[in-house]
């Protein structure tokens, strides 16, 4: 379990990092290292250069700004899990963070690293999709924002261009009557999501669903929004029957993975069950008026 030889640069500014990335097309950014280092140890990847961005100031923060929640890319899972601010204004993020790996992983792994890695069974993509987040990428050419639904392109592939670094995650502060939940079946060995469903629902005065965002991870090559479920929920009074009917669309159009632990059939079934449960839990989480 020894990686191939690589160069290592620890930078102190984002600009330095961007310069190195621009000069070295195959360089990899080292954030928390919890996906990158194992892959290197198995020699699945052999990057010639690691650019360690762990010492750059101001990439690790959680703040409210302009009606948005802004989370720095280097914020650890644990910092999100433990954030009182997020527990109050966007509890889906701490809930999702708490389900990642184990304490050691949560102490080192970062939200930005996880998103940029885009593991098909990673937890964050589901939550980010359900929250309609925007991801801020920065390069030598400046900054751009990418919508969450455009960010996940394929297996381990994101919309980030070579030379770009994911800098920040922005989420519009939920308002009105909203409810969230993240429900996940843990793989017994890896702890990754066999399926993970993030639900973000908003309601009218009654139990009528005004809008629904459902993020699905673990099922296919990349995380996706279950648009079939969302439209089946929107404008509908939610009860067991309507939730069940909507959840049946959880894997519409998705090419489900099969593996030793869960066949494609079973995974589709799990996605449906966990979607149902996530929606029910999200409803329960709505503060009583």
């Amino acid at each position: 379990m020894i990686p191939a030889e690589f160069n290592y640069a620890r930078v102190s500014t984002l600009d330095e990092a961007l310069t190195l990335l621009a000069q070295n097309e195959d360089a990899k950014i080292l954030a928390g290292g919890h996906s990158l280092i194992p892959a290197m140890k198995f020699r699945l990847i052999q990057p010639p250069l690691l650019v360690d961005i762990g010492r750059i100031k101001d990439l690790s923060y959680i703040r409210e700004e302009g009606g948005q929640i802004r989370v720095g890319a280097m914020t650890t899972h644990y910092q999100i899990e433990a954030s009182d601010l997020l527990k109050e204004i966007c509890p889906l993020l701490p809930e999702c963070a708490g389900s990642i790996g184990d304490m050691q992983v949560r102490n080192k792994g970062t939200i930005g690293g996880s998103l940029a890695h885009s593991d098909p069974a990673g937890d964050w993509p589901a939550a980010i999709l359900a929250l309609n987040a925007e991801l801020v990428a920065v390069s030598k050419n400046g900054e751009r924002t990418i919508k969450a639904e455009d960010f996940f392109v394929d297996l381990l592939t994101t919309a980030l261009e070579p030379g770009e670094i994911l800098r920040e995650i922005r989420i519009n502060k939920p308002n009105g009557r909203t409810g969230h939940a993240y429900m996940k079946m843990h793989h017994p060995a890896s702890g990754f999501a066999v399926v993970g469903i993030a639900a973000n629902l908003s309601f009218n005065g009654n139990n009528k669903c005004k809008a629904a965002n459902i993020g699905v991870t673990g099922v296919a090559a990349k995380a996706y929004r279950a648009t079939g479920v969302e439209s089946a929920l929107t404008g509908v009074n939610l009860d067991d029957a309507s939730i069940g009917a909507a959840a049946a669309h959880a894997t519409d159009g998705a090419d489900a993975n099969g593996d030793l632990f869960a066949s494609a059939d079973y995974r589709r079934h799990l996605a449906e069950v966990y979607t149902k449960r996530a929606i029910a839990a999200a409803m329960k989480s709505v503060p009583s008026a």
Binding site: F42, D102, H187, P188, A189, S190, L260, F261
Partner: peptide, 9 residues
């Protein structure tokens, strides 16, 4: 490896 071999935790 232990990502696949499910040792109890």
């Amino acid at each position: 490896e232990l990502m696949d071999y499910a040792l109890p935790k």
